[in-house]
Amino acid sequence: MTLETGGGGRHVFRLIKGDYHRHGRSVLDAAFVSLEIYRYGRWASQLTNPVARWIANKIYGVLRVFILNVTKVWIPPQVVIGDDFHIIHAEGMLSIHPDVVIGDRCGIMHNVTIGRNMGDGAPVIGDDVFIGVNSTVLGNIRIGDRVRIGANTAVSTNVPSDSTVIGSPARIYPRLALFGQAGSKPAARAQAQKSEGD
């Protein structure tokens, strides 16, 4: 999981280019704009020159008002996000707590909240995770890699890798094992036909 957005101008350009392509290749797309403002805020907070950091953070403060009132997508600069993050729809609200950690290649739909649950600690989300519309992921929990969280799901417990989570309260089902069994049927059938021919 790549956790930092630093690493020089080329790295930043690569991040922005990737964001642009994932979000409809439009600089007016609300998801793209919101993500770039997040990246700017993160960059501003990491400046070592105190004067430059102060000025950059004041500019970010103005942009933050834009986020909250126009795009409704709120990703504080303290959030740690891996590579290839995708806000799939920015047609509703998205709120992420500052302490959240999100892995690589994660996709989030609209009207999602990720944050604390009446206590310390926020979710740590693995790689290749999808979070469906109107879902909440709350508390000091770990969401494993390749997890699919269905629409209208409330998650407040750890979820192992390769799982599907559905419902409120959430129910956890193994994901890849089911697909593996289904996928094995044609192979088993082909093997049986081969045996019959021999």
Score class of each variant (00 low, 15 high):
residue 45 S to G: 13
residue 67 I to Y: 08
residue 46 Q to P: 01
residue 171 R to D: 04
residue 36 E to Q: 15
residue 68 L to H: 06
residue 21 H to N: 10
residue 61 G to N: 08
residue 182 A to H: 10
residue 54 W to Y: 12
residue 6 G to P: 04
residue 150 G to I: 07
residue 146 R to Q: 11
residue 111 N to W: 10
residue 114 I to T: 05
residue 194 K to H: 11
residue 55 I to S: 06
residue 52 A to I: 11
residue 181 Q to C: 10
residue 45 S to I: 04
residue 129 V to I: 12
residue 55 I to Y: 08
residue 5 T to I: 15
residue 92 G to L: 10
residue 99 D to I: 01
residue 55 I to F: 14
residue 84 D to F: 10
residue 22 R to F: 01
residue 29 D to G: 07
residue 21 H to F: 11
residue 180 G to T: 12
residue 61 G to R: 01
residue 82 G to Q: 02
residue 177 A to Y: 08
residue 41 G to Y: 08
residue 144 G to Q: 03
residue 52 A to W: 13
residue 193 Q to W: 05
residue 193 Q to R: 14
residue 182 A to T: 01
residue 117 N to T: 01
residue 120 D to G: 15
residue 27 V to T: 15
residue 113 T to D: 03
residue 165 V to C: 05
residue 77 P to D: 08
residue 23 H to E: 04
residue 174 P to T: 09
residue 29 D to L: 03
residue 124 V to H: 14
residue 165 V to I: 02
residue 197 G to I: 12
residue 156 S to H: 12
residue 156 S to Q: 06
residue 33 V to L: 13
residue 164 T to C: 13
residue 167 G to F: 04
residue 134 N to P: 01
residue 185 K to Y: 14
residue 98 P to T: 00
residue 4 E to K: 14
residue 129 V to Y: 10
residue 156 S to R: 10
residue 56 A to D: 07
residue 70 V to E: 03
